[in-house]
Each structure stands twice: as C-alpha cells, then as structure tokens.
Simulated assay, not measured.
Amino acid sequence: MQSSLADIDISTKSEAEIFALYLKNKYNITDCLLETKSTNCGNNITNTLALLKNLDLKPKSIIFMQDATMQNRMDAGFRKYCPCDTALINYATYKVHFTVQNDKLCLEQNNIWQMWNIDKYIELLMGEIPRLTDNINGYGPQGKDFIAHVDIPQEVHSAYQYLYQHLDIKTRQANSLYATK
C-alpha cells in the first residue's frame, strides 16, 4: 500500500502533524487544530481538552481516532475528563482479523500501511488488559485513576490469563520516559 506521505520526512513530526500532512496531501484539508505535545494516551486527552478550553471552544461532539489497540483506553480517558454534555464518538481507524495458518497465529491480511507486525500487535493488545482492569494495578479509579471504570467481561480476563500463562507473549510495559509530569 502506498502512503500519500512517501516523499515527506515524518521522522521528527508528532502524530498530530503527520495526520494533518496526510489530510492535506490526500484531501486538501488544511484547517486542523493540532495538539502536538502529547506523549501518551492520557496526554492526548488532557492536552486536547486544555487546548480547546484555552481557545474557548466548547464542542458538542468529539470524534477520536486511535490505533485500535488503544481505542478502549482512549474512550475511558475521555469519559473521565470530558464534559458530560459533549458527545463522544469513538472510531477505530482499522480492524484486523486473525487466522491460524500452519499452526501459527497470523494476521488475516496485513495490507494496512505501517501496521504493527503480529508480535508487536499481540504485545499491545495484551498490555491493554492490565491497564483497563480497574484494580490497584490498573488505570481505573481503584488504581492509578487515569481513566473511567471499564467493565471487562470475564471471558476476556480468562483468555488473557490463559494466554499469559501458556504462551510466550510479553505485555507492553508503560515507558516512564513518556509519563505525564
């Protein structure tokens, strides 16, 4: 898949700046409000809401798009910090499907530009379960209190425990370099 940013050096750009370049190059959309200082999902929310407040903007709705592996956490963060009268529109930018080929777990198709490889994708997915779990170690009100409460179905917890115990799958650890200061 060819990127519409193939001729642009994006190595020093923030995600917001890259997205704005994509919108400009592909659709000629240039009127974007950018928050470029965020280093983590929580910052994406709090910094954006602070930017809106500083500009005295009171949106009736906010659509948020994120890597699908972090979409639930973004939703929980917005629910914690966003005014109650703002409609939140949660839009995952892509979907992936898994399959088993030759006794190995594989992505059904991997034609998404810049998609994680399967090992990284699974690591990201596995890392979300402890973060979303509302206990002393999680990000919810009973733990770090970064996000609103998330109900995780028991079958998801059971699947996580099984995979964690039986497979050699690492879970992504938070990087303290990007913690909110």
Rank of each mutant, 00 (worst) to 15 (best):
T48K: 10
Y121H: 11
N110Y: 04
C106P: 00
D56M: 02
K53V: 06
K104H: 10
Y164T: 14
Q165H: 12
K170V: 05
I29C: 03
L51Y: 10
M115R: 13
M115F: 08
L52F: 00
G77M: 08
N44K: 05
M70F: 01
Y164S: 14
I136T: 14
D56C: 02
Y81I: 00
I112G: 10
K170E: 11
P130D: 06
V156Y: 10
Q66E: 07
L105M: 10
N47V: 14
R131T: 00
N135V: 08
H97R: 12
L107V: 06
K53C: 08
S158N: 15
K144D: 02
D103A: 07
I18P: 03
D67T: 03
L57W: 07
T12E: 12
A50I: 07
H157G: 01
L51F: 03
A92L: 05
L49Y: 03
V156H: 06
N72S: 08
P83Q: 09
E128D: 01
K58Q: 13
T133P: 12
L107K: 13
D9S: 05
D119Q: 13
C32K: 01
I169C: 11
L107I: 04
T30V: 03
L23N: 00
T99E: 02
I122G: 13
Q173A: 13
A159D: 03
D85I: 05
D75W: 09
N25C: 04
K24V: 00
Y164G: 02
N43W: 12
I10C: 15
A174K: 14
E35N: 13
T30L: 00
K95M: 06
L49T: 08
W113I: 13
N54H: 11
T48E: 04
L23P: 02
I45N: 07
G143A: 12
I118P: 01
A148M: 02
L177D: 14
S38Q: 11
A92H: 12
Q154P: 00
N28C: 05
D119N: 10
I129E: 00
A76V: 03
S38G: 11
A179S: 14
